[in-house]
């Protein structure tokens, strides 16, 4: 474990806490893409298949359970909870996310570290996470003004993989034969997808104005 990866995991945890806070405090999920939440639930379920087979550390297992449980809880809230589901922007959240799932799975069948069930699903989860934010970014562009908590949620979600990139650089420099090309390349693509969001987030923070993404 290094400081970059710890910062990344804590930022990721913070993004989930901010989203849970927004849904719980406002009893609303307006501005939140359910499709992105569903993609993240699939990402965690596919990535943590080793939860019961490979024990890395208490921290590692604990965080896996937190990520799986929180993503499923959010999807449940947005689909079932009567108050929350009423505020879901169904007509704005129209990204065809099934294509993302199919494309990432096909890519994982071709590009993986080892052709085993667990490794293919791990690669699938890495590719899917890189594009999982797309429905959310499209929804933000369509829904005009973005409430603070939703904006902060997306910001922290984007920042966490940025910390992981620093972690991979650090590990590459300090550990012999450390190679994680699949995770590194996908992580760079994932963080790059947030580039314009980060720009408009910085502008709104600098001008102390409402976060607005151009349509």
């Amino acid at each position: 474990m290094n400081i970059f990866r710890l910062a990344g995991d804590m930022t990721h945890l913070l993004s989930i806490i901010v989203l849970l806070l927004k849904i719980y405090a406002t009893k609303s999920c307006s501005g939140v893409s359910r499709k992105t939440q569903e993609l993240y639930a699939i990402v965690f379920l596919a990535r943590y298949l080793d939860l019961f087979t490979d024990f890395i550390s208490v921290y590692n297992s604990f965080m896996k359970v937190v990520f799986i449980a929180s993503s499923l809880a959010i999807v449940w809230c947005m689909r079932v909870h009567p108050m929350v589901r009423r505020s879901y922007d169904k007509e704005l959240d129209t990204f065809r996310h099934y294509f993302l799932i199919a494309a990432c799975f096909l890519l994982a069948l071709v590009l993986h570290e080892k052709f085993t069930f667990q490794e293919v699903f791990w690669a699938f989860s890495i590719y899917l996470e890189a594009v999982a934010i797309l429905p959310q970014l499209v929804l933000l562009q369509r829904s005009g003004n973005v409430d603070n908590l939703t904006g902060q949620y997306v910001f922290f979600l984007g920042a966490y993989r940025g910390f992981y990139i620093l972690n991979w650089i650090y590990r590459y420099l300090t550990e012999p034969r450390f190679t994680r090309w699949i995770a590194c390349v996908s992580g760079v693509v994932q963080t790059a997808l947030y580039a314009d969001f980060f720009y408009y987030y910085f502008i709104s923070w600098k001008n102390n104005s409402k976060l607005k993404l151009p349509a």
Binding site: D9, H12, D50, D54, I56, E113, T179, A183
Partner: peptide
């Protein structure tokens, strides 16, 4: 030869 590395990252 890609050495099998444990998936120790989240």
């Amino acid at each position: 030869e890609v050495v099998e590395q444990p998936k120790d990252e989240l």
